[in-house]
Each structure stands twice: as C-alpha cells, then as structure tokens.
Amino acid sequence: MKKNVFWNWFWIFISLVYFFIPLYATFNFSLKARKGELSLLAYQQMMEDPRILRSLIFSTEIGLLTILLGLLLMVPTVYLVRLKAPRLRPVIEFISLLPFVIPAIVLVFGLIRTYSGGLLPLTNNYTGLNFLLIAGYVVIGLPYLYRSVDAGMSAIDVVTLTEAAQSLGASWPTIMLRVIIPNLRSAMLGAAFLTLAIVLGEFTLATFLVGLKAFGPVIWQVGQNRAYEASALVIVSFIITWVLMGLINFVGRRGAADGSVAAGPR
C-alpha cells in the first residue's frame, strides 16, 4: 500500500517538473529584458506593439464569427435530426468526426487549391480569405461542436421538450428561442470557449490564408527576432488558454477532455 502511494507521487512529481520548467524558464526570461535586473519591460514593449493587439483583436473576431457560424450550422441540424430523422444521426455524427482525419495543413492545402480559381474564387480578396479562414476553423471545430451540442440536447431530451412546448401552443420560433436555446446554453458556451482556444493561437491555417493579420503568425514573427517580447507573448497566450479552459470547467461542460482530442493548434 505504502509502496503504491510512493510510485503515485513519483509520477506526479516527474510530470509536475516537466510541465513546470518550460513555463518557469519562459517566465524567467520574460522578466530579463532590461540587463541586470528583473522588469516588466518585455510586457510593456509587447503592449506597445500595435501589431500584437491588432492581431489579437482580429483573431478574436475570427473566433467569434467561427463560433457563430458553427452554432448556426450545427444547432438546427442536430435538433432536426433528433426530432425528425433519428435514422440520420449516425451519418451526421460520422461527418462531424471526419475533420479528425484531415490535418490542418492538408485542409488549408485543399481549401487553397479549391478556391483559388474556378467557380468560387475566394483567395483573391481579403473578405474571401477571411471567410475561408472562418470556414476552415468551423471544419476543424466540427467534432467538438457536434459533440457538445448533441450531448446538450440529449441531456435535456429535446423531443419531449418540443412536444411539451407544442402542446402548450408555442410556435416554432418560440420553441427554438425560448425553450431549446436557453437550455443548451452551457453546452454552447463550452463549445464556444473551446473553439476560441483553438482559433486564437492557431498558426497553420492563419499563416497561409491571412498571414500576419492573425495572432498565431504574429507570435511566430515576433519569436524570430525579438526574444523578450516573444517570451512575454508565450506567457500571455498560456494564460489565455488557461482562462478559456477554466471557463469551460466553469460552465460545467465536463467532457471537454474528450472534446479536445486530436486537433488544436499543433
């Protein structure tokens, strides 16, 4: 018994050391921008760099639009399939899991090849590229979106809720806006925060579609030549990820664990 507890602590200790050292090293480095003393100079410089803030805002906007588009596509689909065509459910589930099979670099390659000409040229103007970026993120986020919306709907038994609302005389818009959506709030918030966490630091799609307008490529660019600012940025982006994950726990969507499988900004 005692022996087991020792080994448990052993693995926890090893992991903690491994997890902690890179964060400590980066944080330590970020405080040394001024020679010979500890300072927040790197953070100050980072704040003063207009590109960083601008790109963070841009990526946040892209993230919010991704969430909006994703939910608009997913919520009615999952709802209607549950209500009217339960036979189609495995099909939708399968489609939603397909993005796991397509690495981000392959997806962006395909998007560029498909939309750089032909019937729907999107890569020759900024709006088109931004839209392509959002669409790509929706594809990447599809598995999580599906899983949380589906889990949310099975938790509240939408079919019975809908029938109850109908029997009380509610119209379809009323059912959607006043019965279904409010009950899905925590599931949708969980999906939203996870999507945001993926989009904010994402590099692969962003760098090929919009380049330095987005946060991920900017972190990379800063890292190429300004190490202190870069270290400050790493700390900030770690904190952002932490906050978003904390929010997911807070809105109570247990199973974010399962959702965070195999994508993200690798």
């Binding site: 997890f19 890179p22 964060l23 090293a25 980066t26 966490a197 993926i198 630091g201 994402e202 590099f203 692969t204 991920g216 972190i219 990379w220 890292g223 870069a230 270290s231 940025l233 790493v234 982006s237 770690f238 990820t241 932490w242 994950m245 997911i248 726990n249 974010a256 664990a257 965070s260 993200g264 900004p265 690798r266």
Partner: peptide, 15 residues
C-alpha cells in the same frame, strides 16, 4: 492537462 493539451504550436515551441 486540459490547458497543456491545448497549449501547442508556436508558443509551445518557443517555451
């Protein structure tokens, strides 16, 4: 672990 599994890409490499 939830945070770290999503903390990857450029910032991770730099850390």
């Amino acid at each position: 672990c939830g945070v770290a599994s999503n903390f990857a890409g450029v910032p991770l490499a730099q850390a």
